[in-house]
Design a protein around this nucleic acid. Structure first.
Length: 121
DNA sequence: GTTTTGACAGTAT
DNA sequence: AATACTGCCAAAA
C-alpha cells in the first residue's frame, strides 16, 4: 500500500496519543514535519483509521473542537469516546485544550524501556 | 498524467 | 469578534 513518509509519521504520532489526551491536526502535522499539512492529516486519518485502528477521536481542530457538525453521527461518537476517556466538554463539541492537549515527550528517558505494554484500548 | 475533494490552519478583511 | 480567502498535503476519480 505505499504511503508517503508523512502519512507514516502521522499514523505513528496519532497512535502515540495517550488516553485522555487530545492533539490538534496542526500539531500532528507539525510533528510529522509538515507545519501546514493539517489538511493532509485529516485526510490520512479518514483513509487509514480502519486500516490502522487509529484513535481518531483524539484529534481535534486548532480550536479544540470537533470538526464535524454536532448532529453528525461521527461527532456524537467522538464526543462519547472522549468523555469515556475522562475529557470534560466545555460546550457541545469543545474542550479545554490547555488542559487536555497532548505534549509529545521531547526527550527519551533511558529507563523504562522494558515493557511499554498497554497501548490505547 | 490532471482535476477534485476533504475529518484543517493561518492570515486578511 | 466573525466570516472569507488562501495555502498545504495526500488520496480518489
Amino acid at each position: 500500500m505505499k504511503m508517503s513518509d508523512f502519512t507514516v509519521k502521522v499514523i505513528s504520532l496519532v497512535k502515540q496519543i495517550p488516553r485522555g489526551k487530545v492533539a490538534t491536526y496542526g500539531q500532528i502535522a507539525r510533528l510529522a514535519g509538515k507545519p501546514h499539512g493539517a489538511r493532509g492529516v485529516g485526510w490520512i486519518l479518514h483513509s487509514c483509521t480502519e486500516t490502522h485502528g487509529l484513535p481518531w477521536q483524539r484529534v481535534l481542530n486548532s480550536q479544540g473542537k470537533i470538526s464535524f457538525p454536532v448532529r453528525s453521527k461521527l461527532c456524537g461518537e467522538q464526543r462519547r469516546r472522549l468523555k469515556a476517556e475522562g475529557v470534560c466538554f466545555l460546550t457541545s463539541a469543545s474542550i479545554d485544550l490547555e488542559k487536555y492537549q497532548w505534549k509529545k515527550k521531547p526527550r527519551a528517558p533511558r529507563a523504562s524501556r522494558g515493557a511499554p505494554k498497554m497501548f490505547q484500548d
